[in-house]
């Protein structure tokens, strides 16, 4: 048991050393992939140009070059889109959180963004209208879901 603990500590030490390098690795890999994608893109454009160029002289070969060019183009643009999607997905998103402050007496409502320290049923400053203390009655996040087609099930 004690031994396990010590092993854990050593692991933790090692980890804290390597912790700083993670982001750079992630970035390096993605930039390498981007270079590959752009090279593919350029090569397929060259192939297309090639195809147009020799079309008059050799239709069959031109056809092959067209094929190669379009496949390369499709592949690289697909990869590029995929990359963009991944970059978008990589952020941990923080939806806006709303705090509702209500007056218990006159029903005056104040809606604002969540602040650290807010909690439901916390007593707040006096009401602007009747000087009674106000209270937080709700904290939630509102998700605006994109309008979907009527679901079957």
């Amino acid at each position: 048991m004690e031994l396990d603990n010590r092993k854990g500590e050593r692991l933790a030490e090692k980890k804290s050393e390597t912790a700083g390098t993670t982001e750079t690795t992630a970035r390096r890999i993605s930039s390498f992939v981007i270079v590959v994608i752009f090279v593919t893109l350029a090569l397929s454009l060259v192939a297309l140009y090639f195809a147009v160029d020799i079309y008059q002289r050799n239709e069959v070969a031109a056809g092959y070059f067209f094929l190669i060019g379009f496949v390369g183009l499709a592949l690289s643009s697909y990869m590029l889109l995929q990359m963009r999607k991944r970059v978008l997905k990589w952020r941990i998103k923080l939806p806006p959180i709303i705090t509702i402050i209500e007056c218990q007496k006159c029903g005056f409502k104040n809606i604002r963004e969540f602040k650290r320290g807010d909690y439901v049923f916390k007593e707040m400053d006096a009401c602007e209208k009747c000087n009674e203390p106000m209270m937080i009655t709700g904290i939630y996040r509102e998700i605006k879901e994109p309008k979907k087609k009527e679901e079957k099930f």
Binding site: I54, R57, N58, A61
Partner: peptide
């Protein structure tokens, strides 16, 4: 360069392309 390549490749393409494929 590209034009050059296409000219050089011309006879090669004619004879061997199908075979290589």
């Amino acid at each position: 360069m590209v034009v050059n390549v296409s000219q050089i490749a011309q006879p090669f393409v004619d004879e061997n392309f199908g075979w290589i494929l």
